[in-house]
């Protein structure tokens, strides 16, 4: 059985968890195994239908009032208990802020290795083989894990969602006993970014700006361009962030975030190797730069050579027109 931890925020399962479940389903079928979803929280069994729709045969609901708010330690205890009980062959997570915080604790508790931030999962000789970028995508490492269960986190936006079809299945509720004093630390508050922007790692389209923007004001142009798309975010190069033009949470590259949107628009970004590393797994890359020699054009599928201040507003109008059709 491949089990998948379902991350729920605001009473909804995250899309990246559903992607991980879809991939688990595909690989499990290849191995002739079952897929299961694992929900953790105070009262989460109600979220099961979304997992059944993607082919989970069973949904485990690990419930306790103490699990109402996320805690890496408490959630790790719950999941390690589940593994001890149910003995899945593999346990997947989405490589989100929560998944990256939680999965290593579960692995350490179980004494097993973990495959982090995978971009490919294959079945080779009946065994799961994982591939993941290292050096922020300058190289790719493939490997198998010698310990069981096989723990892995899967990068968001890489694995396609399966076709959802209404289906029924078995919900298995498990109470989680949490010894008092076992949990140190708690999430006191979740502070949402006021703008309500989505994160660059979760966006379908990323519009990034670099030194060519010449100042923070021009990011308004990029925000306008991004607003044309339903799930877009604004990114930035390291030099734009280090100049203080935009917050570091927008930085794409080796000391920022690694993104894999369907469409990546690099505006006024020369294309330093450490930036290219963070966005090269994007499906389609577009560059706008006035310097025809800029290295970004070598990484781009499409490029416009021109003054971004002239190109971006026109591009926005053209995109608007096309998307309205």
């Amino acid at each position: 059985m491949i089990a998948v931890f379902m991350e729920a925020r605001d009473g909804k399962i995250k899309k990246s968890s559903l992607e991980a479940l879809s991939e688990a389903k595909r690989r499990a079928e290849e191995m002739g195994a079952e897929t299961a979803a694992v929900l953790v929280g105070a009262s989460v069994a109600g979220l099961a239908p979304a997992a059944f729709a993607l082919g989970a045969a069973k949904v485990y609901a690990l419930e306790s009032q103490a699990l109402a708010d996320y805690s890496s330690q408490a959630y790790a205890l719950a999941l390690a208990g589940f593994v001890g009980d149910v003995k899945p062959g593999a346990l997947f997570f989405a490589a989100t802020a929560m998944g990256k915080d939680l999965a290593p604790r579960v692995a350490a508790r179980l004494g097993v290795a973990l495959a982090s931030d995978c971009t490919k999962v294959a079945v080779r000789n009946g065994e799961l083989e994982f591939t993941r970028p290292i050096y922020a995508g300058k190289a790719f490492l493939s490997f198998t894990l010698k310990s069981t269960p096989k723990l892995a986190t899967l990068r968001p936006n890489i694995f396609p969602l399966g076709e959802a079809a209404p289906a029924a299945g078995e919900v298995v509720r498990k109470d989680v006993p949490l010894p008092s004093g076992a949990v140190k630390g708690r999430v006191a508050e979740v502070i949402k970014e006021e703008s309500g922007e989505i994160d660059v790692t979760e966006a379908d389209v990323v519009v990034s700006g670099g030194r060519g923007l010449k100042g923070p004001e021009a990011f308004a142009l990029l925000r306008d361009l991004a607003a044309v798309f339903p799930r877009a975010a604004v990114g930035a190069s390291r030099s734009a962030v280090d100049s203080g033009w935009i917050g570091h949470q927008h930085q794409v590259g080796q000391t920022g975030k690694t993104v894999s949107p369907n469409l990546y628009l690099a505006v006024g970004i020369s294309g330093a190797i450490q930036h290219l590393a963070g966005m090269s797994s994007s499906k389609v890359i577009v560059a706008v730069n006035k310097d025809v020699e800029a290295p970004i054009f070598k990484a781009a599928d499409y490029g416009i050579v021109g003054d971004l201040f002239e190109v971006v507003p026109r591009l926005k109008d053209e995109l608007k027109k096309a998307l309205a059709e």
């Binding site: 790719f140 493939s142 490997f143 894990l145 010698k146 310990s147 090269s280 499409y302 050579v305 026109r314």
Partner: peptide, 29 residues
């Protein structure tokens, strides 16, 4: 180590892209 390395590679080279030059309105379109 419980990690058995089966492969290490550099990412495939992207195909050369299409570069558009000229009037901004036309290249955008």
């Amino acid at each position: 180590s419980r990690v058995e390395i089966t492969g290490l590679d550099v990412p495939p080279q992207r195909q050369a892209g299409k570069i558009l030059q000229g009037d901004p309105a036309e290249t955008s379109r």
